[in-house]
Write a protein that binds this DNA or RNA. Sequence first.
DNA 1: ATTCAACTTGACAATATTTGTCAAATATAA
DNA 2: TTATATTTGACAAATATTGTCAAGTTGAAT
Lengths: 105, 105
Amino acid sequence: MKNSRSVGELLREKREEKGLLLRHVSAELDIDTAILSKIERGERKANKEQIIKLAEILDLNKEDLVVQYLSEKILYEIKDEELGEKALKVAEQQIKYNNKKNSGQ
Amino acid sequence: MKNSRSVGELLREKREEKGLLLRHVSAELDIDTAILSKIERGERKANKEQIIKLAEILDLNKEDLVVQYLSEKILYEIKDEELGEKALKVAEQQIKYNNKKNSGQ
DNA sequence: ATTCAACTTGACAATATTTGTCAAATATAA
DNA sequence: TTATATTTGACAAATATTGTCAAGTTGAAT
């Protein structure tokens, strides 16, 4: 497997690497430091807009960060579901089927 | 692919097959007929509890219905996302990795 | 064409969840 | 200790979800 760091881990790592404080980054996001702290520790989820901004502020690869973010959203959705893994596979099938259809195949 | 009917289609088909009216089924669910109508036509989502009850009332395979229900929830979550499909795959990988870990491998 | 039952629609209300603030508590370091 | 950074939890505001209701539409049977 490639990279398995959570969004929060990625954010905190990079922020510290850059020597930025919560207050610096949260100011740019226009939120309280408390929320960013929670996001970094996985206690709260960021929203899409914040993820984009964070990628920019911290020079993180935007696509990688968004993919990890969406993946966590999906996993959150099915975290207590026995049938979650099955549902994931069905969802993939249904996306693929749709792609096919809409590309004229 | 096996079965690609949406939750709504499954519900309406089976309800009509059984000769039940919206009012019969919605009474058992303790909601207005309007909502059930919308659920069947895909205009609203049911919640988990309702899905379970509906499977019972309509003699639908509970597992199949729940899987389709969860799949639709997942797809809804990423419907406007370019990176949705990628995120789905990452989510699967991460579930698998977790399974491994927690089974002592 | 009128009537009747089933269903649909959309405006709105209630409730739940998400997203945020703030102030106090806890580290960490000088 | 003092100062700064982070964390915590109670609460408030904003948003999304879930529901009701009443009026509108549809279709079948007079």
